[in-house]
Design a protein around this nucleic acid. Structure first.
Lengths: 335, 335
DNA sequence: GCTGCTGATGCACGCGTGTGCAATGCTTCA
DNA sequence: TGAAGCATTGCACACGCGTGCATCAGCAGC
């Protein structure tokens, strides 16, 4: 008993072929750009397809080519401004290229994102973009072996044939240090979270290194999640110690720091305290804050990700580093 | 020439069967819960699969069952806090149920999201969640006809067998009006954006209706995108007219309004001006704002969405309305 | 020893699509 | 007119998997 196209279920190319009075091949070719079909047959097929509401089954299509248009995107803390911006830009760019964005939320994936990557392999994804979590080398190698491109955003993995995109943590941290020093701050601190991602750790390290060149050593806060609340907690602990200049490795942390310093501890910014952030999320530019920060070039990052996915050649041996830009606002003093 | 499992490409169940010395059926049954396989064969198969790095092909799996585990999620302005929260919660909930979240960014889809839904149909998605845009009735009906569940979040479509989830715009708008009146505000305004979604339009309407019961008529602002900047622009225009109480249909708008009123126009909140928002995004609770707002129960919305996807029975005739909660903070005066 | 039953296993088919190959018909050129 | 070339079309196979059906071995009960 054949499926009844009227009653329910999806219409297949065989249904269309029957109605149009042609072979199934003709239907397939009609929807395949560059295939050889006469204008007359094409018209009949299109009419029949339209009448029946035919939609090509991409699952079957992917089965043939043994590769889908799916791109797995692994991310976490998607509700936070920076990650949300990243995802919005990336999903938009992928769609523009005809790629499907399969979103994998790593929030509940304690410890390892390996199961998420495995799921993408099962879907024969064309590529996997890692925006969060540190994938074990083994699983990345399995992806590469199977022809699934892996793009690591801010998450370097050693000795693996995957595209890696980094931002200029070094230049950013140095600029932050230089600006705070130029503002006359001498009692400095750097605020990060307990979850030390490679990028955040580098920002701390380069900031400290730069200060060490001036024989200064900042207080270091590295507890709690990467959140507004962590910034507030850090301010509560550090400001009473006389800190007059802070580099927060994330804008979100910086905003929490500013709020607690001002509204809880009565400090004036930038008169009593200078604050520098990192990322340039929209809230940093809001009038209540005016946070001086290091802007990440997210469009550039997105372009690199898409280029890595579409490139045919193997990934370059070296990571791409995207520059950051200092955006001066009211949370720091003019020189 | 058969594929060489060592060299490249994905391992198939036939490869595993060959190595384990069993039939391909045995491999399939090993990975099918509840199927009949002896412990000895299962062990051999698992060993072979592990040695070869076998991963079941979900594309082929979906082809068999003619239904995938994919859930299409249509959203726009994903970088904005509220939408980002929605997406974060939904993607997490879907993953917990073993469903895949296929993200469709509607930002570049001017006018119609129909092409996006069509793409989901081609992937034989199990369900489609519309968080943004107004799908034409015709395409929704096609989804339903093909057994693809459609869940409309805040986007009612008339006369269609789809689950619809609304929030209590009426109760929220009334609570906002009542609170502003109780605070002694008499020169009121309601601020929205130019892109009138059904939900936002209802908030305006019910707010006006409530005030009309007190013989009051608010100024209405409805221009620009639903953004922080729109709130600032509205403040610039409305505050000089003597407005002393504002209902912003979105927190993001409210924060822009507050910032301009305070830092640009020198008004004190709540002494000179009371502001009520809607949504309760994280920023509303930040110390710099303390925005009184109507909290949406996003976890409840998410639960309803997931329930609608998993339900076997046809969707209920009536929309589900999720209540909102008044969260009082410093942007309004105590009675 | 024979029958009936149960669990394990393999064969073969179908899911919906793309495509190589051969056959067919038409056009063009000598 | 005949041959060659080209565009078009259908047949048949392959993609990787799940599963109904038949087969078979093992075992209990008579």
């Amino acid at each position: 008993m054949r499926r009844d196209a009227i009653t329910s279920g999806f219409v297949t190319s065989a249904d269309v072929a029957r109605l149009a009075g042609v072979s199934r091949s003709a239907v397939s070719r009609t929807f395949t750009p560059g295939a050889s079909v006469s204008a007359e047959v094409r018209a009949r097929v299109l009419a029949a397809a339209d009448a029946l509401g035919y939609r090509v089954n991409r699952l079957a299509q992917g089965l043939i080519s043994s590769r889908s248009n799916l791109v797995g995107v692994v991310g976490a803390r998607l509700a936070q401004p920076f990650q949300a911006m990243q995802l919005a830009l990336l999903s938009s760019a992928l769609m523009a290229r005809g790629l499907q964005c399969l979103l994998l939320n790593a929030d509940d994936a304690d410890q390892s994102i390996t199961p998420l990557i495995e799921r993408m392999l099962e879907f024969r994804a064309r590529a996997i973009v890692i925006m969060s979590g540190s994938p074990p080398t083994a699983i990345v190698e399995e992806c590469v072996r199977n022809g699934v491109r892996v793009v690591l955003v801010y998450k370097p993995v050693e000795g693996v044939a995957a595209d890696t995109i980094l931002c200029d943590d070094e230049g950013g941290a140095r600029a932050a240090a230089d600006l705070l020093l130029a503002s006359g701050c001498r009692s400095l601190a750097v605020v990060s979270s307990g979850g030390q991602t490679p990028s955040l750790a580098r920002r701390i390290a380069f900031f400290r290194e730069r200060l060490a060149g001036h024989d200064l050593s900042p207080l270091v806060w590295a507890e709690g999640p990467t959140s507004y609340e962590t910034g507030a907690a850090a301010a509560q602990a550090l400001v009473p110690q006389g800190v007059d200049g802070v580099f927060c490795v994330t804008d979100l942390i910086a905003l929490g720091f500013m709020d607690r310093a001002r509204h809880g501890l009565g400090r004036r910014i930038p008169q009593d305290l200078c604050v520098v952030g990192f990322d340039d999320i929209p809230q940093a530019g809001w009038a209540a804050y005016g946070l001086t920060t290091l802007r990440q070039d997210l469009p550039a990052v997105t372009r690199h990700v898409v280029a890595a996915i579409e490139r045919e050649a193997p990934p370059p041996a070296e990571a791409v580093t995207v520059p950051v830009t200092l955006v001066r606002r009211g949370s720091t003093r003019a020189d």
